[in-house]
């Protein structure tokens, strides 16, 4: 019983984290058909800028609660600024190129950003643990959990709702969905596809940076942290179906629960679980769980 509760809670916490790190990735792919390898770098960028800002904020001795604003604000500003730079300065010259070429373009961005981050912040670890420890912990069923992790579940639901509302209930979101469905028709209808692309990339990069900022308090921000999350986010997104937000949600839940179960019951298979799930899903649903089937053009 205790174990079951632990699996459910751990699974949900991990799933919400996975959803936050992969939502931006799947959004960008859905709209722009770019599998953004540099997503991990935006994650690292958010973590670094958020952690640096929180460190500075606490050195001023201001009200602790506002550190959340500092954390998230810094990450969003950094993510969106660099996102703008990357999209306007580089990616827009590449639209229409093969998807695999775009992977490599973003891989190059990742390599450059990794070193740029190192040049700015060095290799010493950065800490922003105050928001994490400040919230305290909750005990139940003989286990104790960090409240920050519960907050993470809330934030992921918020992000999911915001994306759903934005895509389904706003004018811009509806335009975006037209672009997702058929870029050429959208252009023909007079939709400014280029502007939609810019906005999408900024939202995606912003969520990526936000993910980093939200993760930063629970660990030390170190070089290379971005590379580690990419494969994870890819797996989640591929399981759910590339480009589908609800797919990412389901993918995150499946991976999160599978991993928590493995850790508690079969710790030795933990490393494979994600790939096993991915293989299983793809074997039966080659396009992932929620992907829209593409009509093949003859």
């Amino acid at each position: 019983m205790k174990q079951l509760i632990a699996i459910l809670v751990d699974g949900s916490v991990y799933a919400s984290w996975l959803f936050i790190i992969s939502a931006g990735l799947t959004l960008i792919y859905g709209v722009m058909r770019i599998l953004n390898m540099s997503h991990g770098s935006f994650y690292a960028l958010g973590a670094y800028s958020g952690a640096a800002m929180v460190g500075w904020y606490f050195s001023t001795g201001s009200v602790p609660w506002f550190s959340f604003v500092a954390l998230i604000g810094a990450a969003l500003v950094a993510g969106i600024t660099v996102g703008l730079l990357v999209e306007r300065g580089l990616l827009r010259f590449m639209y229409g190129r093969d998807e695999v070429v775009m992977i490599l373009v973003t891989y190059a961005v990742l390599l450059i950003m990794e070193d740029a981050i190192k040049l700015i912040w060095g290799v010493e670890p950065y800490f922003a643990y105050q928001p994490y420890t400040m919230l305290g912990r909750t005990k139940f069923a003989g286990l104790s959990f960090a409240n920050y992790d519960f907050m993470l579940i809330g934030v992921s639901i918020l992000i999911g709702l915001a994306l759903w509302y934005g895509l389904n209930r706003t004018r811009n979101g509806k335009l975006l969905r037209v672009v997702i469905h058929d870029r050429e028709i959208a252009g023909a209808l007079g939709i400014n596809v280029s502007r939609i692309f810019t906005i999408t990339f900024l939202i995606g990069a912003g969520i990526g940076a936000l993910a980093g900022a939200l993760t930063a308090p629970g660990l030390s921000v170190v070089p290379g942290m971005g590379i580690e999350v990419i494969v994870l986010a890819f797996a989640v997104v591929v399981i759910g179906g590339l480009g589908s937000i609800s797919g990412a949600l389901v993918g995150a839940l499946i991976v999160g629960m599978a991993r928590a179960t493995a850790v508690h019951l079969y710790p030795e298979v933990e490393l494979f679980v994600i790939y096993a799930v991915m293989g299983l899903v793809l074997a039966f649903r080659p396009q992932g769980l929620f992907a829209v089937a593409n009509a093949r053009k003859i």
Binding site: L90, F93, M94, R97, V101, L104, V105, Y107, A108, V109, L110, L111, I112, E114, D115, A116, K118, L119
Partner: peptide, 17 residues
């Protein structure tokens, strides 16, 4: 030794562009 990844990144971009 500190920025070799960046050099590779720019080289890759240059080739693609």
């Amino acid at each position: 030794p500190y920025t070799w990844q960046m050099i590779l990144g720019f080289a890759l971009l240059a080739i693609i562009l």
